[in-house]
Structure formats: structure tokens, C-alpha cells
Design a protein around this nucleic acid. Structure first.
Length: 402
DNA sequence: CGAGATTCATGTGAAGTATACCTTTAGGCTTAA
DNA sequence: AAGCCTAAAGGTATACTTCACATGAATCTCGTA
């Protein structure tokens, strides 16, 4: 016990590295957003009519991850809400991330979630979808107001639930007297607009704006800005920021990644009782981030997917001579594992879909190939660093009581 | 030897089923006049 | 008689299963050079 107490005392004596760790987190909205003035102005210009209570055009933003889309929108929105508050305007801006599992990944759940934002509870199941719409709209229509609906990662939702809900949303305006709704869609997928119903497309993207990736220099600027806020002075060694930026620029200019890299490097350095963050910490951080990310995705997966994944791990491990792994093999092992856990195995049909989902999540690569005379299947390989596997495996086994 | 037919193991789409949960409705019970 | 509670009826979304058909290159077949 005394030892632990001593540890805490030591801990408190140490110079902290972080001044404000929040500033280094992706969710943080800084006052300054470097290299995004143009986009910010554009967004502001499009949304501005809302402050006169005119319906702004629907706006559609796209760009790769970590190009500041969400950040710009949140910033603009925050400013607008402030003004609206000041002038007591009946303006509501709702931000919804469609990627969140079990929250907004079907049309039904999206509407339920929206209704909840406006203080109307709707059961999570059991009602017809149009009934849910009616409930939601009635709840809104009792008051005159203007709504800007921000749908982040909208491509995810459309992929799962189709584009019908977009059509319904754009149509709301014609059905309500007191309420006007503008949509602001955010997508990571540049090809997204090509694959949706043209009717929806034209109304959804009255205005479009592309966020180009940052280049290495711009990322450096961003990092410097944030590290000034986040770290105390002289903590970050020379070259560290440059290297973080270089890593991130290599991956299509993802600033979020760069920031995370810097923050985790700092955390690692702190844990090692170092007074400065050095270049070596970055490599370690990169490794850790990758592992954490996978870990997160894996542990939030439903049981059946976990079993499927565990089966794939098991096969990969035994499979020393790099034989390709096929759906059939996975299914066999999967069935065995299910027996062990005393869970009813799903059909191969379903497991096939689960494998496809795991592929989408980026945990595995599953390419459909044809083996000619010997049929066709998915060629499955792991898409995560092998060093991360043992850890995850152990965790999966624990989660499944194996 | 090569063009076309065949074949396999699974992909893929559609339709059906089970489950969990919702609202409505009707009946039965309680309560208060 | 009115009010309240409960259970049944009727309905939906979602996750999964069942059924049926699609795929596509390796292999086979067979006619031809």
C-alpha cells in the first residue's frame, strides 16, 4: 500500500507535460482553424440566411477524413447559435453522427434520434416508420422555427439504409407549415454523390464544397498551434512536429491522425517519466494508436462477429505456410467455436455477411475471388498488424468466456 | 490445340421467420357517488 | 357509472434463415487442323 501511495506522491511531484490535453483531442474546437478560411467562409455564407430566418440552401461537404470538415461546421455552427441565442432567434442546429452504431444506422433510428434531440422520446422499436415521422413532425410543427440538420458521415448511413430517408427529409419542408429544415451533409466518400438517386442528389447538394487534404506544411501549422495550447513550453523536441506531420501527410493529409499521434506521443513520454517528447515516442505512439483503434472496433462488435473474427485469428495462427484462407474454413472453425461457447451458430449465409462487415471495418481484407473449377470464395487476410493480434485474441477469449 | 461446355464452392438477392417491442382495445376489477 | 389496470390483438423493425439463382475461372470435352 505504502508503495502505491508513494507512487501517487511521486506522480504529483512530476512536472506535467500537458497544459491542456483537451486541445490535442480531435473533438476540440479551437478558436483558430488554420488553412480553412476559404471553406469556413463558404459554409458561413451559405448558412447565413438562417440568421434572417430564411431557409439556407442545403449544403454538402466532402473530403477525406481529418480534413477539418466536422471542425469547420462545428465552429460555424457554434458562432451562429451564439448569435441566435443573443437575438432569441428560433433557430435550432442539430448535429448527428450517422456512424454511431445502434444510434443512427437505420432510417428509423435516425428519426428517433432526431426526435430525441428535440426532446421527444420515441420507442426504439415497434412503430411503423411513417408513424415515427408523423410523431416527429407533429412535435416540431407546434412552433415556428428553422432547423439546420447536420448529418455527419452520411455515406455510412446511406450505404446501410439506402437513400430513401434523404428524399423523405428533403420533402419535410413541403409538409410542414411552421418549420423549415436545411440539410448539411458531410461525407468522407468522394464518390458518394454519384451513387444516390438523382432526385435526392439535386436537392441535397444545392451547394457543394470540397475539402482538399492538408499538405505536410499545413499540418505542421496546425500541430504547432495546438501544441502551444496543449503542451507546456519546451516540451516538444525539435523535429517531432515535423515527423508527425510527415506521417499524417503520407496518409492523405489526415490532421486528426497527426494530432492523435502527437497527443499519444506525449502521453507515452509522460508515462515514461520523460520531460520532453522526442521523435522516438512517435513510432511507439503510432503502434499504440493502431492497436487501440482495432481494439475498440473489435470489442464493440456483437458476439457473433467476435467469434467469427476469433476463428479467423485461430486459423491464421495455425496457418504458418501462408495458405489462403477461405470462407468455408472460417465457417467450420466458427461452428466449433460456437459449440464451445454454447451459442447457436448462425448460417453460412449470415457469416458470409459478417465477414463482409469485418472487411468494411478494416479489420480483415476479404476479397471475392474465383478458384475456377473449385468454386469461388473470399480470400481472407488480416488487415491489422500481427503484433496487435495476441492481445486482442486474449481479450476476445475473455469476453467470450473461453 | 483451342473453343465452348461444365463444374464447384460460395456470393448474392429476395422472401420468409422469429423475436422484441409498440399501441390500441376490450374486459374485468376497483372506487366513489 | 367512471376510472384504472391487464391481457390480448394487431402491428412494426430488425436480425437472421431459407431458398434460389448468379458467378467466373479452372478443368473437361470434343471437333478440327
Amino acid at each position: 500500500m505504502a508503495k502505491i501511495g508513494g507512487f501517487f506522491r511521486e506522480y504529483l511531484k512530476k512536472q506535467p507535460l500537458f497544459k491542456n490535453k483537451k486541445a490535442l483531442q480531435a473533438s476540440y474546437t479551437p478558436d483558430e482553424i488554420p488553412h480553412r478560411e476559404e471553406q469556413m467562409n463558404h459554409v458561413a455564407a451559405v448558412l447565413a440566411p438562417a440568421l434572417r430566418l430564411d431557409k439556407p440552401s442545403n449544403l454538402f461537404l466532402y473530403g477525406k477524413t481529418g480534413t477539418g470538415k466536422t471542425l469547420v461546421v462545428k465552429h460555424v455552427v457554434a458562432q451562429m447559435l451564439e448569435i441566435a441565442e443573443e437575438k432569441k432567434l428560433p433557430l435550432s442546429i442539430v448535429y448527428l453522427n450517422c456512424k454511431m452504431k445502434r444510434v443512427a444506422d437505420t432510417e428509423y433510428r435516425l428519426i428517433v434520434q432526431l426526435a430525441r434531440e428535440f426532446g421527444k422520446e420515441i420507442p426504439a422499436t415497434g412503430l411503423p416508420t411513417d408513424e415515427v415521422y408523423k410523431l416527429f413532425l407533429n412535435h416540431l410543427d407546434n412552433k415556428e422555427r428553422l432547423i439546420i440538420l447536420v448529418l455527419d458521415e452520411i455515406d455510412q448511413l446511406v450505404r446501410k439504409a439506402g437513400d430513401e430517408f434523404l428524399y423523405n427529409l428533403t420533402r419535410i419542408n413541403t409538409e410542414l407549415k411552421n418549420v423549415e429544415i436545411s440539410l448539411l451533409g458531410i461525407s468522407n466518400d468522394l464518390m458518394f454523390l454519384d451513387n444516390i438517386d438523382p432526385r435526392v442528389k439535386s436537392s441535397l447538394s444545392e451547394e457543394e464544397l470540397v475539402f482538399p487534404p492538408y499538405n505536410a506544411l499545413q499540418i505542421q501549422d496546425i500541430l504547432r498551434c495546438r501544441s502551444e495550447e496543449g503542451f507546456f513550453e519546451n516540451i516538444v523536441a525539435g523535429g517531432v512536429i515535423e515527423k508527425c506531420a510527415a506521417y499524417a501527410a503520407r496518409e492523405h493529409g489526415d490532421a486528426r491522425r497527426a494530432l492523435e499521434l502527437l497527443r499519444v506521443s506525449g502521453e507515452l513520454a509522460e508515462r515514461k517519466n520523460k520531460q520532453i517528447v522526442e521523435i522516438d515516442d512517435i513510432d511507439e505512439a503510432e503502434d499504440k494508436i493502431e492497436k487501440d483503434k482495432v481494439f475498440d472496433v473489435v470489442t464493440t462488435q456483437p458476439k457473433q462477429s467476435q467469434i467469427a473474427l476469433l476463428s479467423i485469428f485461430d486459423i491464421t495462427e495455425k496457418n504458418t505456410n501462408h495458405q489462403p484462407i477461405f470462407t468455408g474454413d472460417v465457417y467450420e472453425v466458427y461452428k466449433e467455436t460456437c459449440m464451445k461457447v454454447k451459442l447457436k451458430p448462425l448460417t453460412q449465409r449470415r457469416v458470409s455477411d459478417i465477414i463482409a462487415e469485418l472487411d468494411m471495418l478494416g479489420i480483415i481484407n476479404a476479397k471475392v475471388i474465383s478458384k475456377g473449377r473449385y468454386g469461388r470464395t473470399r480470400d481472407i487476410t488480416l488487415a491489422i498488424p500481427p503484433s496487435a493480434v495476441p492481445n486482442i485474441r486474449v481479450n476476445l477469449k475473455e469476453a467470450l468466456n473461453l
